[in-house]
Write a protein that binds this DNA or RNA. Structure first.
Lengths: 205, 205, 205, 205
DNA sequence: CATGAATGAGGATTCATTCAT
DNA sequence: CATGAATGAATCCTCATTCAT
């Protein structure tokens, strides 16, 4: 390992420390309390050091959001839905997503609530790109397949995929903001909500 | 018109200017960017003037929210649902609410996204009180009635009322954020969304 | 009574209201909390009214101080010291003064502590004029008389008059700042202090 | 001298500049006029700089007082009173204290007159804790010893220790406020005052 | 690479005061 | 006579950021 490589690794390490500290502050105290000073003091470096690793504060927040997003994208992309019952499969898809977000509700909430300019384009907030977002397209494909297989009552699959997701977002928003800590109750609620949302779609109900 | 009356009107006028300026800042830049200085500079007065009209910053924000919510409350309270088909009635209830909010989507968006402490008590945000909110209770009552009348499939009416509203909020959030201006398209989407959401509930579908 | 006279009386009345309100605020909340607005709201007039009766804030404070001073001067001037024992007489002189000040310790304290420019010249704080102040001269006269009468051990009466008063002031300062509310204890302490201070002066001790 | 050391010295220098500027403002204009802006403008730096050296305004004031009081405490603690005449010893104790304070009368005056919350705990102001202060206790001990040795007329030693110090404070206050610059005259006055105060206490007078 | 020094802009309030009405 | 409107200066403090070292 050359010296340059070692330096790169070292650099990456500090970058991650900054990232982590910032993330923790957001979770624990909220985005509005995030400050460069606070990050610096948390990692025991001077505030100015941070500017060697990130352009500015927004850059840090963006990186937090991107990490979050990419994890969600990755998990969702690699999700295996193998149940023989397709209704179960699609419900699991939604539940997986909901659970992913609710793993770190405070972070999501903090970012969601702060209208941060730099994050607006992301795939996971409810912006105008929503309709064209990957997750909607994927869901539409599934609905199309179910339709073909005669499982679904006749609907506009694209629209219903879209509706499904924005409803899910409504549920998530509410859960995130209500800050309910009771895991068991929450899981039951998730199940019931997905049932509620999907009920009318499948023929055999 | 006496001098006192004229003064009162003048006072009201400036109060409204402040209100409007603050509202615009919230809409355009987000709540976190709202400052007394900014309001003052927008209305071309000194910052201290504002304190002649409002107690403090919170007071301004509260007044914005109250204006908004009182209109919604009033309209919803006086809503007449006379259709012979109860499914239509409940759909109209949701549609009315959606339309009310989408009248000033940016304002709603700004306030919705900011979870402002002072506004927490209100009946129309989606905080933890959501489940106990007036509109959910009212909807539960309707669902109960439909259930009695044999119109509804057997569900937990309270839970479904709650789910209905958080789904609606998901839809509204998306509409608000997507900023779609095409009224006709929007109305069709609203119809379809409410159909989607309500479909599974009623027996005869 | 002419209209002008009535006006004058009315004017005087409001002036006194302002004076009283200001005094109360100083006593209850301290000089640093005194503000024109607070005075105005206490007397249920607008702040600007006050400027019809007093030049400015300093003017009000000055008038409070002057009232206090003139009362002290008046009482001290008219004090009758008739006891057959001259030591008792001089002690009563000191005690009267101490009690006068301690009647409104908070007011005294507030003014004493605030280094108010306008009051600096007064006869009753411990400024450079102290040595030439009326009360010292009077006390010297008494000491001279006692000396003549053979009651006093041989001292520089002027200096001892001066010393007496600055000691008294030390005592008062301490009492005022210590804010002791126990009247009985306080009276005993005053007695004892004056004893302590005077003890060495008189021959027969 | 390493770079770190030089930096430290530089830092200390500015800290002292701030300290000094604040002290001067307090002396010249009074504590109530002390402001961060004023300090900053006096040392030709921006107000925010000050927060790199002191936590806040209170921190500055505290440091001024601590510097002052620690010197006094140190000198008084190490004072050797070896005279064969105990009356002389106790007089010297008082005189030393008086002289220490009168070394920087304006600063003492400013602080003394302002009863600053942050300073309340100190041993050298004349607040309610006065009676329990170290110097009073020490003086009581001395008086007790003199009493045992048959030097003192019979008195309540605690009370007289207390009275002694508040009288001394009265004297100091007066000297400080009168701003007399004539050292020789002042020294004579100090002698005479302590004589005056102590005279009645000792038996052989 | 890391940092300490420094700043300027901005945050909410408070207040005495003036002035036209 | 009384006041409401308006202001400008002041308060402490926080922060992101730059720059020389």
């Amino acid at each position: 390992m050359g010296i340059q490589e070692r330096r790169k690794i070292e650099k990456e390490k500090i970058k991650k420390e900054i990232h982590k500290a910032a993330s923790e502050i957001i979770i624990e105290e909220g985005y509005s309390k995030l400050s460069i000073r606070k990050i610096a003091s948390k990692i025991d470096y001077s505030p100015s050091l941070i500017y060697n690793y990130y352009e500015n504060k927004a850059d840090i927040v963006l990186s937090i959001w991107q990490e979050k997003s990419s994890k969600i994208i990755h998990t969702m992309s690699n999700l295996k839905l193998n149940d023989s019952n397709e209704e179960t499969n699609i419900k699991n898809l939604f539940k997986t997503y909901i659970n992913l977000i609710l793993e770190s509700p405070k972070e999501y909430r903090a970012i969601m609530l702060n209208n941060i300019d730099i994050i607006k384009k992301s795939n996971f907030d409810f912006t105008e790109e929503e309709k064209n977002s990957l997750k909607i397209k994927e869901t539409k494909k599934k609905y199309d397949k179910y339709l073909e297989e005669g499982l679904l009552r006749h609907v506009d699959t694209e629209k219903y995929a879209f509706f499904s997701w924005i409803s899910i977002n409504g549920f998530i928003s509410n859960m995130v903001l209500s800050n309910n800590q009771d895991k068991e109750f929450l899981n039951k609620l998730i199940d019931e909500y997905v049932d509620f949302m999907i009920y009318g779609l499948f023929k055999n109900n």
